[in-house]
Amino acid sequence: MSSISTQAVIDLIQKFHIVDTEEPLTPDSDLFSCGLDSLAMMQLMLHLERDFNVRISPAEMTRNHFASPEVLATWLSHPNRTPA
C-alpha cells in the first residue's frame, strides 16, 4: 500500500470543506476542536476511501484515528492496515 502524506490529508479536508475553520490546518491540528463532528467524519471517510483507494471499516471509525491530519495519515499508511 502506498503511503499517504499528512499534507495530502490536509488538502483533502480543505478541498471538500470538511471542517469550518478560519485558521489554517497544520499536521497536528485537533480536528475535533476545528469542528469535525460525527457527520463530517463520515464525509471525510468517503473522500479518503475514494481519493486514496483505502477501505475503512465501520469498526475503525474511532475518534483516536481522526485526531489530527498527521495521526490520520500515519494510521492510513500503516503497513498492518488491511488494503482496499
Binding site: S38, L39, M42, Q43, M45, P58, M61, R63
Partner: peptide, 17 residues
C-alpha cells in the same frame, strides 16, 4: 456510546455509497 454511534454512522454512509 460514541463509538457505537460512529460505527452505525459509518455503516449507513457505506450503504448510501
Amino acid at each position: 456510546d460514541d463509538a457505537w454511534r460512529l460505527t452505525v454512522g459509518a455503516m449507513i454512509v457505506r450503504a448510501v455509497r
